[in-house]
Simulated scan of single mutants.
Amino acid sequence: MIISRYICLLLLLAFYLPMTAQKDLKPLVSTAEFQERLKKEAASLSSIESDFTQEKFLDVFNEKILSKGRFYYKQENMIRMDYTSPVDYQIIINGQKLKIVSEGKSNVVNLGSNQMMNEMKGMLAACMVGDLSSMTSAYKLEYYESPSLYVVKIRPVSKSVQAYISEIVISIDKKNMAVQTLRLSENAKDYTEYHFTNQQYNTLTGDEKFVIR
């Protein structure tokens, strides 16, 4: 029960692809050129900080829940999300540890002791930065493009991962290869969507925001 709870919390770390953008999609012809350019851009990226708006839809409640906050990423494998609306909430991932702060109470979980949790952490970090080279044969990747975006659809092959994630769709700006949005579908109806704005790159010098005690 505890592990399932924290897996669900990790699933909140996703961006979204607006459905309107998918109308103009067509299969990407030169995937090798795209992958090389993406890898090069990802190699020059040391940190990201951005505002975000989250939209969470749960079919059982038939409603969308909106949240806002600030997102931080820093090499290697350091992620932080500070929710500021409608409630204060914090998620920090640093290496093999996950910290959650809610209502002034914190809880720390060791990700390295659970293979599923560790795999999901690596997958989500890869998607956030746009470096898909770490994606293994455990995932099926399909590449598309629109006039302004590259779009990658990621589907897990493993049945155990499919139990929590049915598909991730990541969109990347053609101009600067920046990850703009991701849509994470937990099943056919439930999903989490994030929209990031005011992005800043390579601005974080220290690790203070990612300290887990």
Rank of each mutant, 00 (worst) to 15 (best):
L13M: 11
Y144S: 02
Q75N: 05
T31K: 05
D24K: 14
I7V: 05
Y83K: 07
Q199S: 06
E76G: 13
E167L: 05
Y194G: 12
K23A: 08
D207S: 06
T205S: 07
I79Q: 05
K153C: 03
A138S: 12
K153M: 06
K64M: 13
H195Q: 13
D88G: 15
S133F: 09
V109P: 11
S85T: 14
S146G: 02
M1H: 15
N62M: 12
S46V: 08
I7Y: 03
P18M: 08
L25W: 11
M128K: 07
T203R: 04
S160I: 13
E208G: 01
D59A: 10
T20H: 12
V179T: 03
S148R: 12
V161Q: 02
L58Q: 07
L124R: 03
A126G: 06
M177W: 06
K23C: 08
S102D: 15
R80W: 09
K159D: 10
V152A: 03
A138M: 13
L45A: 00
E36H: 06
K209V: 09
N107M: 15
A178L: 15
E36M: 12
I7L: 08
R5G: 08
N187K: 00
S102F: 12
Y150V: 00
L182A: 11
Y6I: 06
M123H: 04
L45H: 00
D88F: 14
T203K: 06
P156W: 01
